[in-house]
Simulated assay, not measured.
Amino acid sequence: MKILAFAGSISSDSINRKLVEYVSSRFDGHDVELLDLNDYEMPFFSSDREREIGVHPLAQKFADKIDASDLIIMSLAEYNSAYTAAFKNVFDWVSRIKGRKHFGEKPIFLLSTAPGPGGGKNVSEVFMKRAPFSGAHVLTNFVLPKFKETFEEGKGIIDEEKRAELEEKIDLVISHINP
Rank of each mutant, 00 (worst) to 15 (best):
residue 82 A to I: 11
residue 89 N to C: 01
residue 93 W to N: 03
residue 59 A to S: 04
residue 36 D to K: 08
residue 57 P to R: 09
residue 136 A to K: 11
residue 36 D to L: 09
residue 66 I to P: 00
residue 88 K to G: 06
residue 60 Q to Y: 05
residue 62 F to C: 02
residue 107 P to F: 04
residue 63 A to K: 10
residue 36 D to Y: 08
residue 129 K to E: 13
residue 119 G to W: 01
residue 120 G to F: 06
residue 43 P to K: 11
residue 126 V to L: 08
residue 113 T to V: 11
residue 164 A to H: 01
residue 169 K to A: 05
residue 65 K to N: 07
residue 60 Q to E: 15
residue 36 D to N: 12
residue 44 F to Y: 13
residue 90 V to D: 04
residue 59 A to Y: 04
residue 164 A to E: 07
residue 127 F to M: 10
residue 137 H to V: 14
residue 55 V to M: 08
residue 170 I to A: 01
residue 164 A to Q: 07
residue 118 G to C: 10
residue 53 I to W: 07
residue 88 K to P: 02
residue 132 P to G: 07
residue 57 P to W: 06
residue 94 V to S: 00
residue 130 R to E: 15
residue 62 F to G: 00
residue 36 D to Q: 07
residue 55 V to C: 12
residue 67 D to N: 13
residue 145 P to Q: 13
residue 113 T to W: 05
residue 83 Y to H: 02
residue 42 M to F: 09
residue 60 Q to A: 11
residue 54 G to N: 07
residue 42 M to Q: 02
residue 167 E to G: 07
residue 75 S to I: 08
residue 69 S to P: 07
residue 80 N to Q: 08
residue 67 D to Y: 11
residue 36 D to S: 13
residue 50 E to R: 09
residue 160 E to D: 14
residue 88 K to V: 02
residue 148 K to Y: 14
residue 87 F to P: 00
residue 97 I to N: 01
residue 141 N to F: 13
residue 70 D to C: 05
residue 159 D to C: 05
residue 72 I to D: 02
residue 47 S to C: 12
residue 120 G to K: 08
residue 37 L to E: 06
residue 96 R to L: 02
residue 122 N to Q: 11
residue 69 S to R: 06
residue 108 I to A: 08
residue 107 P to I: 11
residue 107 P to N: 13
residue 58 L to T: 06
residue 151 F to L: 10
residue 124 S to D: 13
residue 74 M to D: 03
residue 35 L to T: 06
residue 111 L to Q: 01
residue 127 F to W: 09
residue 161 E to A: 15
residue 148 K to R: 15
residue 58 L to H: 08
residue 170 I to N: 01
residue 163 R to P: 00
residue 48 D to T: 10
residue 46 S to Y: 00
residue 164 A to D: 04
residue 60 Q to N: 14
residue 42 M to Y: 03
residue 78 E to K: 04
residue 147 F to M: 13
residue 51 R to N: 14
residue 67 D to H: 10
residue 69 S to I: 11
residue 67 D to T: 08
residue 143 V to R: 01
residue 112 S to W: 06
residue 81 S to Y: 14
residue 120 G to V: 02
residue 149 E to Q: 14
residue 90 V to A: 03
residue 84 T to V: 00
residue 59 A to G: 08
residue 63 A to P: 06
residue 104 G to E: 09
residue 41 E to R: 15
residue 119 G to N: 08
residue 103 F to L: 04
residue 45 F to S: 01
residue 173 V to G: 00
residue 99 G to L: 05
residue 165 E to V: 06
residue 137 H to E: 15
residue 110 L to D: 05
residue 173 V to F: 11
residue 151 F to I: 10
residue 64 D to C: 07
residue 154 G to Y: 03
residue 65 K to H: 04
residue 160 E to L: 12
residue 57 P to I: 09
